[in-house]
Computed example of a mutant assay.
Amino acid sequence: MSKQAFHAQVAALTAQIAGRPLDAALDAWLNAEHGAGSATYAQLKASCEEGVAEGWLCEREGGGIRYGRVFKAEDALHRFSVDVVDMQDIAGPHHVHPNGEIDLIMPLADSRAAFDGRPAGWCVYPPGSAHRPTVSDGRALVLYMLPEGRIEFTKGA
């Protein structure tokens, strides 16, 4: 799996969601059309696992979390940035999503890992939402897309 092939996979998905509100309807649509058990989910998960194994995904580590921005927001990705994190039974730093956030939750191995209490599949946070991202009950990769790459880390929340 090359970084360019992964870019093409993500671009095909962002083309389908470009311009849509980041809300519960998008969350439901993503899970119905591209959720756990779908070809899209399987392909993205395999690509992320390969990227981690090859060292071009999650190349940084801090506070027990492996992470990395794969692509900055650009026109080819319909103005979404793409990051992937590797987390196991840990809460990450609190942050705000000025324009929202779209997450793909991919438990690893036989794990029943959940992200913010959500199982394998998609989770959409609307603009202005905030959280302390938490993976429980195992290890998961989480791909997240941010409109315009916007994220604001907060102190102490």
Rank of each mutant, 00 (worst) to 15 (best):
K3A: 08
H7L: 14
H7T: 11
H7Q: 14
A8M: 10
A8C: 09
A8I: 12
Q9R: 13
Q9K: 12
Q9A: 11
V10Q: 06
A12T: 11
L13G: 07
A15K: 14
A15H: 11
Q16H: 10
Q16R: 15
Q16C: 10
Q16F: 01
I17K: 03
I17Y: 00
G19D: 05
P21C: 05
L22Y: 04
L22I: 05
D23W: 00
A24D: 14
A25V: 07
L26M: 12
W29E: 11
W29V: 04
W29R: 14
L30A: 06
L30Y: 03
N31K: 10
A32S: 15
A32I: 01
A32W: 00
H34M: 06
G35M: 02
S38P: 08
A39N: 13
A39V: 15
T40E: 01
A42G: 12
Q43F: 00
Q43H: 07
Q43P: 07
Q43W: 00
L44Y: 02
K45H: 10
A46L: 07
C48R: 09
E49G: 08
E50T: 15
E50G: 15
G51A: 13
V52H: 13
V52A: 14
E54S: 13
C58R: 00
C58E: 01
E59H: 15
R60L: 08
E61G: 14
E61N: 14
G62E: 12
G64D: 00
I65H: 02
I65P: 10
I65L: 05
R66G: 12
R66Y: 08
G68D: 03
R69E: 06
V70A: 03
V70N: 03
F71L: 05
K72T: 14
A73N: 12
E74C: 14
A76E: 12
L77Q: 08
L77I: 09
H78D: 11
F80V: 06
S81Y: 03
S81L: 02
V82W: 00
D86A: 09
D86G: 05
Q88I: 11
Q88H: 13
D89K: 03
I90C: 10
H95M: 04
H95P: 01
P98E: 04
P98A: 09
P98V: 07
P98Q: 07
P98M: 06
I102R: 02
D103F: 07
D103S: 13
L104P: 00
L104W: 02
I105L: 04
P107S: 09
A109T: 15
A109F: 09
D110I: 09
R112V: 13
D116E: 14
G117K: 12
R118Y: 08
W122E: 03
P127T: 09
P127W: 06
G128S: 06
S129R: 01
A130H: 04
A130M: 04
H131S: 12
H131W: 00
R132I: 06
P133F: 01
T134H: 07
V135N: 08
S136E: 11
G138T: 07
G138S: 04
R139C: 07
R139F: 01
R139A: 09
L141V: 03
V142I: 15
V142E: 03
L143P: 03
L143Y: 01
L143A: 05
Y144Q: 08
Y144H: 12
M145I: 09
L146S: 02
P147I: 00
P147K: 01
G149R: 11
G149Q: 08
G149Y: 00
I151E: 11
I151G: 03
E152R: 12
F153N: 01
T154C: 02
T154S: 02
K155A: 13
G156K: 10
A157L: 10
